[in-house]
Simulated assay, not measured.
Amino acid sequence: MNNSSKAVVSFIVGAAVGVAVGYFLNSDKKDELVGKLRYQADKLKDKWKKKKDQFEDALENELA
């Protein structure tokens, strides 16, 4: 595959991704997906906070 063929394939793939993203951003599913992502992010944040608190408690116990 020569450079011009690679450029054409890259352009087509980029255009397809752009169309897909544009369609997604204008669809009704966007709000549903954003809500799910926020929920998962909040769960992960809570999990990390608990781990951090456990680590801090263990560190305080070691240093005491």
Rank of each mutant, 00 (worst) to 15 (best):
E60N: 08
Q54E: 07
F11R: 02
K36F: 03
N61R: 12
V34N: 07
S4D: 15
D53L: 15
K47N: 06
E32S: 01
K36D: 02
D46P: 00
L25W: 10
K29L: 01
G14Q: 02
A7G: 03
D31R: 02
A16V: 07
M1E: 15
V34P: 00
E60Q: 14
V13G: 00
V34L: 09
Q54Y: 11
A58L: 06
K6M: 09
K52H: 11
F55T: 08
G22V: 06
E32D: 02
F11V: 13
K50Y: 04
Q40W: 01
F11P: 00
N3R: 14
W48P: 00
D42F: 07
Y39K: 10
E60C: 14
S27T: 03
D42Y: 10
N26L: 05
K29M: 02
E32N: 01
I12C: 03
D57M: 06
G35Q: 01
D42L: 06
V8A: 07
L37T: 06
L37W: 13
N2F: 14
Q40M: 15
L63C: 06
K29P: 00
V9Q: 08
K43N: 13
V19W: 01
V19H: 02
K36G: 00
K51M: 10
K6N: 12
A7P: 03
D28V: 07
D28A: 12
V17P: 04
K47H: 00
M1H: 11
S10W: 00
L37F: 06
L37V: 12
R38K: 12
V8T: 04
A41F: 14
S27L: 03
K43P: 00
D28G: 10
D31W: 03
N61A: 15
A20Y: 12
S10I: 01
D46V: 08
S5N: 01
K52N: 09
V21Y: 11
F55D: 02
W48Q: 13
D28Y: 05
D46S: 08
W48L: 08
K49S: 06
G35I: 04
G22A: 05
A15W: 03
G14A: 07
F11W: 06
R38S: 01
A15F: 05
L25N: 14
F24A: 11
A64V: 08
E32P: 00
A20I: 00
S27Y: 08
G22Y: 01
D42G: 03
K36H: 05
R38N: 02
V17I: 12
G18C: 09
G14D: 03
L33M: 02
K52E: 09
A7H: 14
L37H: 04
K51Q: 09
S27P: 00
E56T: 08
N3E: 13
N26H: 03
L44W: 05
L25S: 08
G14M: 02
V9L: 09
K45I: 11
E60Y: 06
I12G: 06
V8I: 13
S5C: 14
N3G: 15
S5G: 02
Q54H: 15
D28K: 05
V21R: 12
K6V: 11
D42C: 04
K49R: 10
F55E: 05
E62L: 08
A64G: 12
